[in-house]
């Protein structure tokens, strides 16, 4: 028995040295569905490649790229200055690829009578100036503010696009993923939240911002207020398998995946 365990362990360690064409992707949970589907189809076409996809949030992904534990960092926001400095100190040169466009949809419970808000009203709700739906034309009901956690790129983008970098009200529920927000909104009557366009389902209601609905078309034409690009960051100019994968995502087939997953393709 003892011998068997030792042999198995030794074999396992030896096997670790034989590596296939490996790509590790980590980061934004918003980009996750695109990354996962793309990885799936890429591996279907290239059986020798081995792609791993991890979530964690945009900040986590960029951090991993800097510390060298991932090849591609998925991000739903642009890299920050302090991250660029950290990267430079480790001789990492992040290179950005815009892989898709996304709109941050503001969603409310299905039974909410409010179907449109102005940008100012959204900012007021999220900074705590407005606390009851009555103040924005709804019924007399307390507003439950739901937000993403601070590791999220969607949180950062929303802060910039919608709140002009003001702080989210301290009583807000912070959720770790888009799907968690959608679930909270669908089960909480007075709740308001924001998710990537791909996460808007029939179980929640998307509200128009300044009279413009969040749709593929309005995002692509930049008519929708909260539109943003989604990124994949690589260390320097991508090489080998990583380059092939980025090329695949930017190709027509890759952009079809983007559309199928509910995001906005670049072309």
């Amino acid at each position: 028995m003892k011998k068997m365990i030792t042999t198995v362990l030794a074999l396992m360690i030896c096997a670790g040295n034989i590596l296939a064409a490996k790509i590790v992707m980590e980061g934004s949970t918003t980009v996750l569905p695109i990354a996962q589907r793309a990885a799936e189809e890429y591996m279907d076409a290239n059986s020798s490649s081995d792609i791993t996809v991890r979530g964690g949030g945009s900040g986590v992904g960029i951090n991993s790229l800097i510390s060298g534990t991932c090849d591609i960092a998925n991000s739903s926001r642009e890299i920050k200055d302090n991250e660029l400095q950290a990267a430079a100190s480790k001789k990492v040169a992040p290179k950005a690829f815009v892989v898709a466009m996304d709109g941050i949809a503001v969603i409310v419970n299905k039974n909410n009578s409010v179907s449109g808000l102005s940008r100012k009203q959204v900012a007021d709700i999220y900074t705590g100036k407005v606390t009851n739906w009555q103040q924005v034309g709804g019924k007399n009901e307390r507003i439950v503010v739901v937000s993403r956690d601070s590791a999220s790129g969607t949180f950062e983008s929303f802060g910039e696009l919608a709140l002009n970098k003001q702080k989210v009200v301290s009583g807000a529920l912070m959720q770790a993923s888009n799907q968690a927000i959608a679930t909270t909104i669908s089960t909480t009557p007075g709740a308001i939240g924001y998710v990537g366009l791909g996460y808007v389902t029939s179980s929640v209601k998307s509200v128009a911002i300044d009279g413009v609905e969040a749709t593929v078309e309005t995002v692509l034409k930049s008519r929708y207020a909260y539109s943003r690009p989604l990124y994949m960051y690589t260390n320097g100019e991508p090489k080998g398998e990583t380059k092939n994968f980025i090329d695949f995502i930017l190709s027509e087939d890759g952009q079809t995946i983007v559309t199928e997953e509910g995001f906005v393709a670049l072309k």
Binding site: A15, I51, V53, R54, G55
Partner: peptide, 13 residues
């Protein structure tokens, strides 16, 4: 844990 991975683990790493 990985969110998505196709192959089976080829080593303990």
């Amino acid at each position: 844990a990985a969110f998505y991975k196709r192959g089976y683990p080829d080593s303990i790493f």
